[in-house]
Amino acid sequence: MLPGEPAAQREVLREAVGWLVEHVDQPQVLAARCAELGPVVAQLGVVPQRLDNLAVLFVDMLRANPPGVPVRRDQEEAWATTGRLVARWLADGAAAAAHEPVSWSAPVLAHERRGQVGAELRVRTYLPYPCLPGQLAVVESVLLPGRWRHCWAVPDPAAGNVGELHVVPHGIDPVGAALVERTAAGDVLRLRPVYGQPAADPMSARPLLVVAGRDAVAPVRALLGMLRATGDPRAVTVFWPAAVERDLYRLADVAAEGTVVIRGRFPAGHDEDWTGHDAFVADEPAAVAQVRARVVAAGVPEDHVRVAAG
């Protein structure tokens, strides 16, 4: 479940074991944090029987670090007991997931304002947060507990469990306003499982039409980056009403060769035939239904159109 790069794995494990050592004499704290992780572990497909291996793994870790230092029997027994307790508390938390929504803790690593009303938040989850381009993260701000909002999510597989959340408040939007105006690096957000379909059907070979609103550059960048990284050969045409010409490079610099990026709203003319295409529409909630209708009217079958509103 940990990031693929060995250096990233070691860093996450070092932090986790360090936290465990600091809090092992506070079982109430340890139990509560394990219970929080339990539902996420279950969501990621780890069965309770696998958690029982933690006792063995903790002892193996003790013997290997540092190399050559003898380990006493009582130390082994202490670590094995700790492993069994952690496994039990994780399993208890996983069992509770049947009654409560799963959530990930996501510390904010960086917060950057975009334009006059938007912001990009770089966040980290210690366990993977499954998310594909086009899907929306469901986010709670610590400032407004119990209130959740959909946000554009930009996963970054190369960065391990680090990704971006892009927020542009619309209308009366207290959570969006809190994320943009009152959130800073060091704050901790909570994420629930993603909402919506991925932008592109991985089993399709049809050309792809992408129609994005001005504030929807985040999911489109994520989609184009994924298609290039996976070597997806399908033809892609993007309509995006960029404010200025240089904004187009925010898409072009991540797109595969041959991707057509058109600065403008869809449709640009009346002669295009989009029959035989898949489509992805990303826009603000008030506009996405109208844009979808225009895409269907241009020839894309309704069941080949995927939408996201953020």
Rank of each mutant, 00 (worst) to 15 (best):
L2R: 13
L2N: 00
P3Y: 09
P3N: 00
G4D: 12
E11R: 13
V12R: 12
R14P: 08
L20A: 15
H23S: 01
D25P: 06
D25M: 04
P27L: 05
P27I: 01
A32H: 03
A32W: 00
R33S: 03
P39C: 03
P39R: 07
L54H: 08
A55W: 12
A55T: 03
A55G: 13
L57M: 05
A64C: 07
V69I: 11
P70W: 02
R72S: 15
R73P: 00
E77C: 07
A78Q: 09
T82E: 04
R88T: 06
W89A: 05
A95P: 09
S105C: 05
E112A: 11
V117A: 08
L121D: 05
R122V: 09
R124V: 14
L127P: 02
G134C: 08
V138Y: 15
E140F: 00
G146K: 05
E164T: 11
V168H: 08
P174I: 04
E181L: 14
P193W: 03
Q197M: 15
A200L: 08
A200T: 06
D201K: 06
S204D: 11
P207H: 00
L208C: 05
V211H: 06
L224W: 14
G225F: 11
L227F: 12
A229M: 08
D232W: 13
F239T: 04
P241F: 10
A243S: 01
L248F: 04
Y249E: 14
D253T: 11
A256S: 11
E257W: 13
V261G: 06
F266I: 07
P267C: 01
H270M: 04
D271A: 13
D271Q: 12
H277Y: 12
H277L: 00
D278Y: 01
A279N: 06
V281E: 09
E284C: 02
V291A: 03
R292V: 02
R294C: 06
V295H: 01
V296W: 01
V300K: 10
D303Q: 14
A309W: 13
